[in-house]
Design a protein around this nucleic acid. Sequence first.
DNA 1: TCTTGAATTTCGAGTCATCAAAATTCTAAT
DNA 2: ATTAGAATTTTGATGACTCGAAATTCAAGA
Lengths: 226, 226
Amino acid sequence: MPTSTVEDYVKHILLEEQRQPEALVPMGRIAAALDVTPSTVTAMVKTLADSGLVTYEPYGGVRLTPPGRKLAAHVQRRHRLLELFLVQIVGLDWSEVHSEAEHLEHAVSERLIDRIDELLGHPSVDPHGDPIPSAAGVVREPDFPTLLLCPLGAPLRVERVSDQSAEFLRLVERSGLVPGNGLSVESRSETAETVRLRLDSGEEVSLGWRAAAKILVQPLVAAGKA
Amino acid sequence: MPTSTVEDYVKHILLEEQRQPEALVPMGRIAAALDVTPSTVTAMVKTLADSGLVTYEPYGGVRLTPPGRKLAAHVQRRHRLLELFLVQIVGLDWSEVHSEAEHLEHAVSERLIDRIDELLGHPSVDPHGDPIPSAAGVVREPDFPTLLLCPLGAPLRVERVSDQSAEFLRLVERSGLVPGNGLSVESRSETAETVRLRLDSGEEVSLGWRAAAKILVQPLVAAGKA
DNA sequence: TCTTGAATTTCGAGTCATCAAAATTCTAAT
DNA sequence: ATTAGAATTTTGATGACTCGAAATTCAAGA
């Protein structure tokens, strides 16, 4: 069985690959994500390569092998199912479930995860809108525009929030930008680097560009649900 | 923070102290409980003593210090709340929750455990009838007679099952001896080393002495609930 | 092409938890 | 009192993971 350290490494490598497909994942990113020194990553990555979980190009970076990808997808599945479970069944706040799931993902049995999956009705996304890999390890990664890149004025629905920090999630919740909610982009200011939003509730909110880029949306064709 | 290994050591030491108060816990028992070699226990116990969690008498055994006892009670609390949670909320079978909780007990946050405690209505015993320590770390250890030592013929209620192995628990469930159920002891046979039971449901069951000693019961005064 | 600064790797070392084999200590029976 | 046998401790070693400091490599600009 892989140790929880190994699971953490492949999990973060997968995350990096998902945000930049094609590219090799450089050591530095892994070190930053796991909060360890670069020399530790170099050492660890070699043992991952020995176990056949990644391919390693010195001074280049790593890429998951099929077995590595499968393991990583399983960890991601556990993590995201746990997050949803903790929000929906246990009643924790979505801003606190990420760090909780971080620990639990290495401790839950396959049996328990299956039961949780069943309890939740085989969901396809977690509370942040991130897709949940299937039991077979397949991930569907749809590619939504952000509030920074979507058309002005058109009706939108929040699909996904791509920052798991508790602080950001609390802001999102306060602003009414949780996945599922409807809104439209009123205007963008190049100089102020802000985006002005009108929520379906009528409220107006403005976000900085960094924040706006983290909110992924689905343009709705008419008033219906695309 | 204590490592999960340290938590496991103090947890099992507490368990041994609970079944034999007064006595020092010998190394061998710990080694057997944790499935490690005696030399490992000796080494580990020294570091526990250095951390002030146990007092160690070479060739004698160990005893928990107040801080050690407190830590152990917290682990026990997490374990038992998790067992009850997995049975009542998640719907797992009570024969499988022990090993699941064994892993989760080291991964859950204080926050989550408090939430689970609340969700369950601050229960006082787990599915096996084992008492759940309070958040402050206090354990109430009532002392019930077993099916081997209780009066014959008198009405009884199953209080507790002191063997967590999945196999034994499945037997207990099949026989209708889960905590809460009523019964009486018909007879005991010295030579066959068996106990003959009559359940409130009317069924008759017989158990060997080893098994009977693991079922703790409460003698009921009349027909009411004592 | 040369140089320089950032990223990466190498090297030496340390912690934690574990084991097997050998030595020691204790206990209980003679 | 001796002593055999069980329990325990000592010793030396290993694997997994980590660090810091020094050396190396790479890529980009002069």
